[in-house]
Every structure is written in structure tokens, then in C-alpha cells.
């Protein structure tokens, strides 16, 4: 019997066992709640710093010891200490509940994303389908939040949002199909393992491009940010949300961005496969490569905001069904041809 067990009373010992258990560490620390919130906050800081560099500014500087890292935390505290104003025309319960639900649904996306062969909250044989289900329902709390504000700008924003999101879900689904067929599995871990010799971006470059554009549109970043167009729609569907509500909605959209960026890494860039670094064990190296590759994709998404103007809703819809859907169907055709060729030789 270990020494600690003799000294500690059984309830405390059970508590320690629970805290050090695999399930608790995965759910709370990595890749669970703490990691997800830190990743979300880091994305906000990274975006502000990167855009500042693009515009030859310095960006956040004073709060925190290094490069204004604590600015985001300070902003969070500021949002929480403001008054939560509920407009007269709003549906009050939905107005309070929907921002919460948005965070819950978008944070649940991370439950299906592996950061290494063992760093996964919920292993499942159909994890990619579960992920897609949550991506598909994630706009619904946000749409309801916009509708519940009872504002004209929100309503215009939410109609645009619904058109845009639902138009881009089909290319997303078809691009995922290409990956599933090539990996012969619905499990994201097995999809990554199928890329051990060659990442899927090489045979499926068309699918990757379509997936990337869809990703930017799904998280309504510039150039696809018609629903929240700051200059004409005054933040669109988010216009009535202040303090806590605004914070939650922003957190929800950033979490979705992060989850989709990590998914791109896992599906197309070979996930945790990368050159081995001597002296670093595999269970640290795997998340390192996933996060490094995700950071590259994240930088690309954020740089679009620094370079492109907003495009009109008609062009967004046209691009969706006229360019992206044929692109993804073509990708699917190429994938099935590649899969069939070995049979004939």
C-alpha cells in the first residue's frame, strides 16, 4: 500500500485519484476546458497583434509583461463589469440564453478533435460526422440570438447570416466526403493515420482550397463578413448585445474558428505527423505539430482580414454554389479515380 494512502483519509484519496485520472486531465486541462479558453483568448490577441503589424501599428502593448498578452484578459474583465442592457423589443429569455448556448455548442466541437493519438476527449468511430453535426447546428443559437434582439439591423444581419451559412454547408460536407473516402474511415484519428506517408493536401488540393474558403465563410471572417458588416450594419446581428452577451457571442465565433482551423490541420496537413525532434517525447510532440500547423492556417485566415475588402452577399452566394460546389464534386471525382487506379495495376 502506498504511503500516501496510509496518511490520507479515503475521501481525499479518492479526490486525488479523480483529479489525476485520465478523464479529468483530458476534460479539464488538455485538450479540455482550460486549453480551449486559453486558445480562444490567444486567437483574439494574435489577431490584434498580427493585424497591427499588417497596418504598421504596434498593437496591444502595455497590459501584461510581454507584448500586451494580458490585454485580452483585461478586456474580458471590462466586458463582465459593464451593464447587460436588454432592449424593450427583445425576447428576454432567449436574449440571455442564446449566447450561453452558442458557447456550449461551439466549445463541444473540441470534444471530437484529437491533438495526438491519445489527446482526445471523446474517441468515436464516427467522430467526423459528430463534428459536422455540431458545425451544422452551431449557427442556430446565433441566429436565434440575432432574432431575439428585436432590432432591424439584427434581422437584416441574421437573414444574410442564414443564407451564407447554409449555402456553404454543402461544399463543407462534400469536401469532408473526399477526405472520408480517401482515408476509408469516419474516425478523425484514423484519417490522420492514413496521412502518415502523404498529407491529403497533395492529392486533394482542390478540396483543400474549397474547404479553406468555406471555413473562412463559415466563421464569417472578412471577406465574407456581410452578416456583421461593421460599417453598414453596425455589427449586424450582434448590435444589441453588450457586456456579457457580446463576450459570449465573440467567444463562440472564435471557438468555431479555432475548431475549424484545427480540423483543417487534421484532415489535410497530416495532423500530428512531422519531423521528430530528439529529446521530446511523442505525447508532447504530437500536439506541438498540430498546434504549429494550425497556427499557419490561422495566420492565413487572419491575414485575409488585413488584405481583402468585403464582398457583396450576391457574390458570396454565387461563389458558393457556382464555384465551390463544382470544385468539391470534381475533387470527389478525382479522389474516387485515385482510389480505383490501384485495382487495375
Amino acid at each position: 500500500m502506498p504511503l500516501a494512502a496510509q496518511i490520507l483519509p479515503p475521501p481525499i484519496e479518492q479526490l486525488i485519484n479523480f483529479i489525476t485520472s485520465d478523464a479529468f486531465v483530458k476534460a479539464v486541462i488538455f485538450p479540455g476546458a482550460i486549453f480551449v479558453s486559453v486558445f480562444g483568448l490567444f486567437t483574439v490577441w494574435y489577431e490584434r497583434k498580427l493585424l497591427a503589424r499588417v497596418m504598421l501599428r504596434i498593437g496591444p502593448l502595455h497590459v501584461g509583461k510581454y507584448a500586451g498578452l494580458m490585454q485580452v484578459v483585461a478586456d474580458t474583465v471590462k466586458f463582465l463589469s459593464k451593464e447587460y442592457i436588454i432592449p424593450e423589443t427583445a425576447r428576454k429569455r432567449l436574449f440571455i440564453l442564446m449566447p450561453m448556448l452558442g458557447v456550449v455548442v461551439n466549445a463541444l466541437l473540441f470534444a471530437f478533435l484529437p491533438f495526438g493519438p491519445m489527446w482526445l476527449i471523446f474517441p468515436s468511430d464516427i467522430s467526423i460526422l459528430l463534428f459536422f453535426i455540431f458545425v451544422a447546428i452551431s449557427p442556430i443559437p446565433l441566429i436565434l440570438a440575432g432574432w431575439a434582439s428585436g432590432n432591424k439591423y439584427s434581422l437584416i444581419g441574421i437573414i444574410r447570416f442564414a443564407f451564407q451559412i447554409f449555402a456553404y454547408e454543402i461544399p463543407l460536407f462534400l469536401a469532408l466526403t473526399g477526405v472520408i473516402v480517401m482515408a476509408r474511415s469516419f474516425d478523425i484519428v484514423k484519417i490522420v493515420e492514413a496521412q502518415a506517408s502523404m498529407p491529403f493536401i497533395i492529392p486533394q488540393i482542390i478540396g483543400f482550397l474549397a474547404f479553406f474558403i468555406t471555413l473562412v465563410s463559415e466563421v464569417e471572417r472578412i471577406p465574407f463578413d456581410m452578416p456583421t458588416a461593421e460599417q453598414e450594419l453596425v455589427e449586424g446581428w450582434m448590435v444589441e448585445f453588450s457586456s456579457y452577451g457580446f463576450l459570449m457571442l465573440q467567444l463562440a465565433t472564435y471557438l468555431k474558428l479555432d475548431a475549424l482551423v484545427v480540423l483543417t490541420t487534421l484532415l489535410y496537413l497530416g495532423g500530428w505527423y512531422g519531423p521528430a525532434i530528439p529529446g521530446i517525447p511523442d505525447f508532447i510532440l504530437a500536439p506541438f505539430w498540430v498546434l504549429l500547423k494550425s497556427l499557419v492556417i490561422l495566420t492565413a485566415v487572419l491575414l485575409l482580414r488585413g488584405t481583402y475588402p468585403r464582398i457583396t452577399i450576391k457574390k458570396i452566394l454565387d461563389l458558393g454554389w457556382r464555384v465551390l460546389i463544382p470544385m468539391t464534386l470534381l475533387n470527389l471525382l478525382i479522389v474516387s479515380i485515385i482510389m480505383t487506379i490501384p485495382q487495375f495495376f
Partner: peptide, 29 residues
């Protein structure tokens, strides 16, 4: 064990926004 992790994560993810809302109630005027 996999279900355990998912349940703990789900509980945390639900608690976090409620906690923020409570903090807003306390801190906000």
C-alpha cells in the same frame, strides 16, 4: 473512460457561461 471525459467536459462547458453570467450580475452596474 472516454464517456467520463466527455461528461466532465460537457458539465464544465455549461458551467463556464453561467459563471460568466453570474460574474456579470455581480460586477456590472
Amino acid at each position: 473512460a472516454s464517456h467520463d471525459a466527455l461528461i466532465i467536459y460537457l458539465v464544465l462547458v455549461v458551467i463556464l457561461p453561467i459563471l460568466f453570467w453570474g460574474m456579470n450580475k455581480l460586477l456590472g452596474p
